[in-house]
């Protein structure tokens, strides 16, 4: 029957797409992470091959052993985790009062305020990161301003430090934090805050004891949306961080493009993927627990 055929085709097309462009590529990454680097095109020994005696498997775990033993890789892994965690916490600290402020604004202003938060997301990420170079560099605008105000007498080195990376992440991902926080805070019944106020709680007490606990699903979602891309970030550490700041995304990039070591790059990708999945699972559980009895 033609109707059934149509439906089957409708399922088949996206399913084939997912197998070809999502599942298979990730399996190839996993496969190549077990292969050996050679100077050839492509620069790796295939793991699965056919020889005269039948199928052959030639993989080994050398790449993973290298990742675990070489200080460069362990350092870039730990640095990524640390920077992503600190930057996510900073984004939360800055995003929370902004989301709270928007949720408390008069309803007719809220749409415009939200649009103002989202709009930078539509402008190029690369350009927004680039904009900070001109501000942060030694002879940049920030240092000129501080010098002119007499607050410092030597330019501060901010660019090429971890602080510049933190700043870049907070700046680039702030909308991802503010939106879920706003949704969570806006959903809280105002009667709860009023009740707290009637019982004598002051504004800060109400915020910490009513608003914050009830906004936990939004906090979890926002942190997830910032932490995951921050972990694998390449552009921000490359442009704002110094040559000594290693993050896993940048290390992967260098292994692939500069060193042409595809197998090690693939192994790094697998490790990063595992870390991301652990992060997702943890935050998903936190969110589900916090969301119980709410929605």
């Amino acid at each position: 029957m033609s109707a059934n055929w149509g439906l089957r085709l409708a399922v088949l097309l996206p399913a084939l797409w997912l197998v070809l462009f999502v599942a298979w590529p990730l399996l190839i990454v996993a496969e190549i992470s077990f292969s050996e680097v050679v100077s050839a095109i492509p620069p790796y020994l295939p793991v699965f091959g056919w020889s005269e005696s039948g199928p052959s498997v030639s993989g080994n775990v050398e790449n993973y052993r290298l990742l675990a033993s070489d200080a460069l890789y362990t350092a870039s892994l730990l640095t990524s985790l640390r920077i992503a965690a600190v930057a996510t916490a900073l984004t939360l600290l800055i995003g929370l009062p902004i989301a709270h402020g928007i949720a408390r604004a008069e309803p007719r202003f809220r749409g415009a305020l939200l649009l103002l938060v989202i709009l930078p997301f539509w402008t190029s990420f690369l350009i927004r990161v680039y904009a900070w170079i001109g501000i942060l560099k030694n002879e940049g605008l920030l240092n000129e301003l501080l010098l002119a105000l007499g607050l410092i007498d030597q330019p501060l080195t901010i660019l090429t430090t971890e602080w510049a990376i933190h700043l870049g992440i907070v700046y680039a991902y702030l909308p991802f934090m503010v939106l879920p926080l706003y949704v969570a805070i806006e959903r809280i019944d105002p009667a709860l805050r009023e009740a707290a106020a009637d019982l004598g709680a002051r504004g800060t007490a109400t915020f910490f004891r009513i608003t914050l606990p009830l906004a936990r699903p939004g906090i979890a979602a926002g942190c997830l949306l910032v932490f995951i891309p921050a972990m694998g970030e390449f552009v921000i550490p490359d442009l704002l961080g110094g040559p000594n700041t290693l993050m896993i995304g940048k290390t992967l990039w260098v292994e692939f493009f500069a060193n042409r070591d595809w197998p090690v790059a693939a192994a790094l990708a697998v490790v990063l993927l595992v870390l991301v999945l652990v992060g997702i699972a943890a935050l998903d559980r936190a969110q589900r627990r916090a969301g119980e009895g709410l929605a």
Binding site: L26, V29, P229, E233, G249, V276
Partner: peptide, 10 residues
Amino acid sequence: VLPEVILGLA
């Protein structure tokens, strides 16, 4: 949710 470097490499 995949970091860009992973999707690009894959």
